[in-house]
Write a protein that binds this DNA or RNA. Structure first.
Lengths: 336, 336
DNA sequence: CTGTTAGCGCCTTCAG
DNA sequence: CTGAAGGCGCTAACAG
């Protein structure tokens, strides 16, 4: 038997009291007779009363809802991030409205519009890989909807950001390889549009200089993260006459693909050639001959911090002027 | 400069027309002067007008929002499912409100309550692994919020379900092993509370009978899906004096763990012992010595179908009486 | 073609 | 301690 959800009005009618009394009773308002309060709460329970958040949102101008815009949920890094966000919001009484851009700027725009329509109280974003126009987000902020970016953050926008710096960790990756007597090193970088491209590049260059590696022993190639280009990239490295004995891959997915290809060429992983990479996906630890190390980028922590910042902004009692605008984690090399 | 979002009222004031004119103009209502319509739409654009969904939801009693309750986003199967749901809802103008139960019945209840509060138009659920009390969901349905379960569906509830039958595929798994001359087979099943437990069990029994395998060559153990219990389970199998030469694992995560342990015992995968399992996670194909096969359970398709069913119910023009209540996919064995 | 108005459920100020 | 009433933004029925 389907019935419409109960309202305070109904409860009021049943008890012959006013709706304001009911409202107050349900909120443990001081100055309501204990007796009435009990009666109200009992009937509410009986009728299965659940306050209508849509009405409350409308009335209060707050939806108790946070928007999350990510490239793709179906990628460990981001699904871990979502988990973090949802864990945090759940305990703060907020709910999460999601949208995935699929690394498509147009879709990203549409999603922003949807969030705006729904009047989410704030938005957490990890940008699509080729977003360069930030006006949709500026629009949000102009309308009083705070935005916090994490991991894939905008390079030229005055906004709250949480990110993970890879340059130092990249240096350490090279240090590690050099310490293990590797001299010829290959490097598979990613799309230039991503902020982390430069961090990897710089860290790598820095360490190459530090260790006085010869330029001819260094090969840098790149991939747009598709399997095809990744295969092309690793092929380029393996085809060199002085093949590198170690490869730094853009991330674990790239590394897995590269390792697979390398194995298929009859080379022995960790004998003929070793791999290190970024992301530190749990899954990579199950390989028999896998990565020497991977760089932990703290998806959970980044997302958690971003959410925390958002809540500080939303919590109007807090003073946001003291809030640090750009929070940076340091990535860490994890040995496997 | 932060400003409050514009309302139709403001647009109306600017143009000295009534709010209903504005409302109609914005909705391309027939019978509004082309001139006025244009003027309204122009001002709306100028003021950056975005309709307040909270107000609309309140007024219409429809939130254009779908709730999704899953055990854990951070598990490939479910993150793929979310992707499917979000892809579908996005193109239908709906938004997704998420909640993860972390396989905890209490949290699941809380999430249901939140969804109810938010008056989502419908809910998609994959149950927590030990949910046996379905009253929260019955409550939802009683309040007119349709619920569609998928994959982890309730066993004793008259409700819309989409699932993937594993019994047939489990039989084929055994067929496959027998064809490869395996006689001693170990089977790691999961928690009994899950509907698929029985499907695996039955399929297995069926095939054991079919192939006339001797009972003493068959060993069935189980895990609650924690690493510890999985390790205990595989240990039990390996410790038998006539160790199985093939193992069917509850799913790929269990398999990965079991394979790792087995390797650490000095056994050679695919020589001393082979593994097959369920879920067919992309990741398992990167192992050098990995699974012989895995059972595809179609997370994307299941979630898509569930969403489709939900939309048919929500679309009141459709006749739901013709709707099939329990949709079943057949799982498929995929060779690796 | 356009304006007026009621009301969705709830909170909150103002009166008793 | 409790009641009455206004209003949040929007839609839709009714009236011009």
């Amino acid at each position: 038997m389907i019935q419409k959800p109960a309202t305070i009005k109904e409860i009021a009618k049943r008890l012959n009291v006013s709706i304001s009394t009911v409202s107050r009773a349900l909120h443990d308002h001081p100055g309501i007779g204990l007796r009435t309060k009990m009666r109200v709460q009992q009937i509410a329970a009986e009728l299965n009363y659940v306050p209508n958040q849509a009405a409350i949102s409308f009335k209060q101008g707050k939806t108790k809802t946070v928007g999350v815009i990510l490239p793709n949920f179906n990628e460990d890094f981001f699904s871990i991030a979502i988990t973090a966000i949802e864990d945090m919001t759940q305990s703060n009484g907020y709910t999460v409205l999601i949208g995935q851009s699929h690394d498509n700027t147009e879709r990203e725009k549409t999603i922003v519009a949807t969030m705006q329509k729904h009047r989410v109280d704030g938005v957490l974003v990890s940008l699509s890989k080729n977003t360069t126009d930030f006006t949709p987000f500026e629009q949000l902020m102009a309308n009083g909807i705070p935005v916090v970016f994490f991991d894939r953050i905008p390079n030229q926008l005055d906004a709250y950001t949480v990110s993970c710096d890879l340059s130092k960790a990249t240096e350490q990756l090279v240090d590690l390889l050099v310490a293990q007597k590797h001299k010829r090193i290959g490097f598979i970088n990613g799309p230039e549009s991503m902020a982390s491209f430069k961090e990897r590049e710089e860290g790598f260059r820095e360490s190459v200089k530090k260790h006085k590696l010869s330029e001819k022993d260094i090969t840098v190639v790149s991939t747009d993260l598709t399997k095809e280009q990744t295969t092309t990239a690793i092929k380029q490295l393996l085809d060199k006459k002085d093949r590198p004995t170690a490869v730094i891959a853009f991330n674990d997915y790239v590394a897995l693909e590269a390792i697979k290809f390398t194995r298929e060429q009859g080379l022995k992983i960790n004998e003929d050639i070793s791999f290190v990479s970024y992301a530190n996906l749990p899954i990579t630890t199950y390989l028999e001959q896998g990565l020497l190390a991977s760089v932990e980028q703290f998806p959970y922590e980044q997302a958690e911090k971003a959410t925390e910042i958002l809540f500080t902004i939303l919590d109007e009692k807090e003073d946001t002027s003291a809030l640090q605008k750009n929070y940076v984690f340091q990535a860490e090399v994890v040995m496997h």
